[in-house]
Amino acid sequence: MENVLSILFCLSLFYVSLTLRVKGYIAVLRSQGIILAILLLYPFIYDFSVYGVIIPLTILIIKVFFIPRYINKIILDLDIKRQVEPTIQQMTFLPLVIASMILIFLATHIISLITKIDVIPFASGFSAIVVGIYIMIFRKKLIVHVVGFLIMENGIFLFGTAVASELPMMIELGVLLDVFVVVFLMGIALNKIRSSFEGIEVTQLGRLKD
């Protein structure tokens, strides 16, 4: 089951590196939230406890409903164009992602011979981190950078489940809160930038220095 979910997770990574629409990015965030929630919920089907259901539910609420809606709202408010404006061609971006993913899987396989980790979730999480960083490097729009950051965070989440099967709940919640605050602050910042600059592109942030 974890493997199937990890495959779906990686597929969403491919999709995000393929699509050119900001809407697609948000849809990917949503689906990744659902996948993570199911992944965390899955062990509790056989062994139910209220305590264990809290994290998946919070994830579901924050990642699937709250953050995407908020980003959508920012897009509507600020009238951001629907294209992500890549700096390199999509046909170069996707092979880059594929190549890094192959490398990551092979490296993980080698690591797993030494220490005991689940190869697939570990590698998927790792790939998500890399893809998130790539998105931040190769995209111009600031709002897309936020999405990239969130994908990276999802990757860390998956990564965490692979390293230790159960992280302490408070830490998980803390991470979630952290992310939420970051997104919130970004939204406010974007609104403010909007009022003083024309477009919202990373290239223009360089003008902020003086």
Binding site: F14, I98, I120
Partner: peptide, 18 residues
């Protein structure tokens, strides 16, 4: 088309390492 190839690669990667 590249997406379809990527699915194939991912599939094989995951299958091999499970």
């Amino acid at each position: 088309l590249l997406f379809a190839t990527a699915i194939g690669i991912l599939n094989l990667l995951i299958f091999t390492f499970t």
